[in-house]
Design a protein around this nucleic acid. Sequence first.
RNA 1: UCCCCGAUAGCUCAAUGGUAGAGCGAGCGGCUGUUAACCGCUAGGUUCUAGGUUCGAGUCCUAGUCGGGGAGCCA
Length: 474
Amino acid sequence: MTHHSVAHALKASPGIETTVRGWVRTRRDSKAGLSFVAVSDGSCFDALQLVAPATLPNYQGEVLHLTTGCSIEATGTLVPSQGKGQSVEMQVASLRVLGMVDDPDTYPVSPKRHTFEYLRDYAHLRVRTNTFGAVARVRHCLAMAVHRFFHERGFFWVHTPIITASDCEGAGEMFRVSTLDAHRAAAAHVPSPTTAPNSPDFSQDFFGKEAFLTVSGQLNVETYACALSKVYTFGPTFRAENSNTARHLAEFWMIEPEMAFADIFDDMDLAEEFIKYLFKAALDERPDDMAFFNEHIDKTVIETLKKVIESPFERITYTEAVKLLEQAIARGRKFEYPVKWGANLQAEHEKHLTEEVFKRPVIVRDYPKEIKAFYMRLNDDGRTVAAMDVLAPGIGEIIGGSQREERLGVLDQRLDEMKLPKEAYWWYRDLRKYGTVPHCGFGLGFERLILACTGMQNIRDVIPFPRTPGNAKF
RNA sequence: UCCCCGAUAGCUCAAUGGUAGAGCGAGCGGCUGUUAACCGCUAGGUUCUAGGUUCGAGUCCUAGUCGGGGAGCCA
């Protein structure tokens, strides 16, 4: 007797005998002498309907007591369904209970509507629901598509370090990695990860110096780009920012491609092609899950994805963006924050551009150098840098990237302006000394991509076990 | 970190300062090739914690804890 996944069974031709295993979604009894048991094993969105006749030896004793969440193994014949709602069902010859639900009244994911907020407290069980199962499958589909996309284009996947003792990443607050006695460290009154006069003696620590969890693999992956030409990272990333929003996690997954012999325009082309490839993969490979999202989560998500795939992204400069916003204000549009060249675009400004002006993804480039990182390439105007952000409707910033400063003199000048210690960047500067090349790259927040793809609203609901300030449950 | 809101049955929520309620879910029964089933019955509560005001507090006051939304930072 062969064993099949529910996904396989639903596509099998009628008459086949097989065994499926999974968890009960619902049970309905009929006095016609049978029970309908919907069983799901997560292999696809749909459950398989089992038709369990009252003649089963354990019908009274077990089948009639099956509740949502019970694990079972059923053997029988796949037949065309007599009822509506499914084309195939299994006529059960034998049904074995693997695990009952102890107390159905307190089973956290009973067959009723639950709020996502409630389900976050049951992250170990929420994946058994339609929504979280669909998210998990789409997440996998997108992860595979990321690797496929780069592999097909000659990019190499580089495993940049998770732990870094480099004090030059500078992309945000970092988590400390230490084997020093926690109480001694506390007694030393360390105010922040940056070195303080009374900080512990990190020369005694595991790495002989302060170490942290990475906030970005970019600086490391640049070294590989300057040898392998086209590379990318895809791995966990950590930010110890006290961010409490639906778009931020303390631990998230980031994708960072880096290309040598390429400029900011190549970078934008890659970002656009990448997003479109990923959206298409989700639509092509997970039509069942996407149909669910479109029906129950966001009625426009499929249409939105299709539109993104079909139409070119809008591309404007920061200066043009400011002009558009000023024009909107002149027409009477109110913003909470003022619009001024030189200031960061606020979330409300980005929303206006993507959701009201263009109604599609917008790539904004050439930002004032003062509001961007030191490594971004200085433009000829001397006051902007070759940075680009991809803004998506409903999500906001989904990609941030730039052409990197490849001229040592200019890089040093920027380090000085930002009062950063050149010594710490010695290996990064070496890349500019020894055969420097123009290069560029970007960072894509994987969970933000999943938000865009599924129409889900909260980033905590698209990662299995979200880590946020004050919460590292499970 | 700042602003706003919330915490009552397994879940979602009601309840002028005056006996604690409904829907869903659960259990039992009825009905039905069922599928958001339907009908009936039943069970289920330290109203987040600690103080206070009051004859009387789920309700008002104070403090705390936890959670959510928005903002900033960013991906």
